[in-house]
Amino acid sequence: MNLLGALFQSSIGKKLLMAVTGLVLVGFVTGHLVGNLQIFLPPAKINTYGHMLESLGAGLWAIRLFLLACVAIHLWLAFKLTAENRAARPQGYGVEHTNRATLASRVMLRSGIVVLVFLVYHLGHFTLRVQHPEWSEHTFRLADNTMVRDVYRMTVQGFNSAGISCFYLLGVGLLAYHLNHGLVSMCQTLGLKNERWTTGLERASAAFCWLYFLGNAVIPLSVRGWLPVLSGLIQR
């Protein structure tokens, strides 16, 4: 059988692509978080980091396109698989009964959609700066006198609104929730799981998701001055 055809058409192939694109995106969001946590360091750090990324030029675009492709495939397959799954049971049961499927696993499409909306908003908010074209003008002087974009200030201002901050919390919360099923599920799809270490895997995945959520949550919370110690680290 043709490899690509099988990947895109067979049930397991599709799941595999789902898992692999998911994995890439998990890698991305994790790296992204680590980068963002530099907000708790002096502004020069994160601005240097931002500048380093922007200076990648074509490379940055390649990465962006690759990530976008992953999102697109992940998304397209999510809809396709769901449609196929619905079609596989045209007549439902009179009594709907769930034995052990977790809530997270049953709302993957819904949590995914909210995360998608969040993603679009987030891109508009910080990457395209639709609402705040002025952010593009803010600059920051590094120690060697180079002028770079002031990511630090942008982030701090970005969370000025309580509503936006809450939406961020919801977005990353649902993403963490999505990942909690997604990570373990991915191991199953890649054939890297069995019952002897499932409990460990589930715990590790839950821990990861909590860390991911908390790591993301502390940023708006600190910026808004809602966290005693961390808020003090933010330079307004």
């Binding site: 397991i12 079609a87 099923h181 599920s185």
Partner: peptide, 22 residues
Amino acid sequence: MVQAMDEAGFGNCTNQYECSAV
């Protein structure tokens, strides 16, 4: 076997393990 399974019109696994529960 997977091909025959797909052709028969079953849905796709979403790793929820309802199967092994029953």
